[in-house]
Design a protein around this nucleic acid. Structure first.
Ligand SMILES: [Zn+2]
Ligand SMILES: [Zn+2]
Ligand SMILES: [Zn+2]
Ligand SMILES: [Zn+2]
Lengths: 129, 129
DNA sequence: GCCGATTTTGACAACGGTTTTCATTTTGCC
DNA sequence: GGCAAAATGAAAACCGTTGTCAAAATCGGC
């Protein structure tokens, strides 16, 4: 699970935002790579398991992946239009989530936090349209 | 889109946690209701659009719904095992999300925040097992 | 290098939740 | 009742994802 995995990881590293499996598959094929869609899914699965890529679900239920620069826990500010993504730390949110869980006696507390918006570039492009 | 919608809403109101469309459909059929799965989906869609029910996606990509008591913006603390759900307000999180968006010049900022954990009941049940 | 064992691969089928289709039924209105 | 509009639901289509399984690549031992 190595050569293909690395190839998929490389594609993700040269991508700006989150990308879907199909998306990656199409791009790799266009680049001339001989890879199957199944293998892309497997690579993404193992990369995700190893924490080498972040995964999140879009509104329409599609899983999308990104090779993040930070390897510690963080969240994302994602442009709804172009996918441009900023990695953001949120110590306040971490504490809040823990506190909320503790308040009601919940254990093994985890959380999902994503922020969406329109990035400056897309905002100005839309404004001048 | 009213009679069925109300029936689905009623089912949700007498449910403790989040439930899936299929789940609701099965229960209604078991209760003797003559309703189709398509109608359940349509009812959930419109209830969700009208903000009368909250929707979120489980880890495995299933959409689940809940009739929340509060009609203002809030988040959820959900038990991973039994689905028991607590509605929580998070003014700090709201401010944080806004601030993060503003920091990078993003507009129309929205966010998704969910907290998961194991509720006290499920924790003690598991402990005594 | 050679060869068998092990792992990886990928075309294709299958899966499952959701949406679309479309003919039938129910509803609202006169 | 009669009629148009809206709602309904069975079945098919959809689509991202996962399973299957035989072929191909890789790894060790010799
Ligand atoms: Zn953008
Ligand atoms: Zn966090
Ligand atoms: Zn529980
Ligand atoms: Zn919020």
């Amino acid at each position: 699970m190595s050569k293909s995995s690395d190839a998929v990881h490389a594609i993700l590293r040269q991508s700006e935002g989150f990308r879907s499996a199909q998306d990656i598959f199409t791009k790799m094929r266009a680049d001339g790579a001989k890879i199957g869609l199944t293998t892309v899914y497997r690579a993404l699965q193992s990369l995700s398991d190893d924490g080498r890529v972040d995964m999140l679900r879009t509104d329409d239920g599609e899983s999308v992946y990104r090779a993040c620069e930070s390897d510690v826990h963080h969240h994302h500010l994602v442009c709804r239009r172009c996918g441009h993504t900023v990695e953001v730390a949120g110590p306040d949110v971490e504490r809040w989530a823990e506190a909320v869980g503790a308040e009601y006696g919940f254990t093994e507390v985890t959380h999902t936090v994503e922020v969406f918006g329109t990035c400056p570039d897309c905002a100005s492009a839309a404004g001048s349209r």
